[in-house]
């Protein structure tokens, strides 16, 4: 999906847990996530800490979107 949306002209970042799969399917900007059943969260943390964690992943995703890349890049 990341590849097709980029093909249509919109820069896309893929936040995902299994980075090798994302590379295989052709996402260009990749941000590794936390875990498969909770990619943007961690139930072991408090609600506030968890939201901060989620926010840090989105911040990284924004940086990825603002970064010039030549090839598939894991941020």
């Amino acid at each position: 999906m990341a590849k097709e949306i980029e093909k249509a002209g919109i820069p896309t970042v893929h936040i995902c847990t299994v980075v090798p799969i994302s590379k295989t399917v052709g996402a260009n900007r990749i941000v590794p996530a936390i875990a498969i059943p909770h990619p943007l969260g961690n139930p072991a943390k408090s609600e506030d800490e968890e939201k901060q964690l989620r926010r840090s992943l989105l911040d990284k995703a924004l940086r990825a979107l603002e970064t010039k890349i030549e090839e598939q890049t894991v941020f």
Partner: peptide, 8 residues
């Protein structure tokens, strides 16, 4: 102008 895709 920008998309974030999240996957499990």
């Amino acid at each position: 102008r920008a998309v974030i895709i999240t996957s499990t």
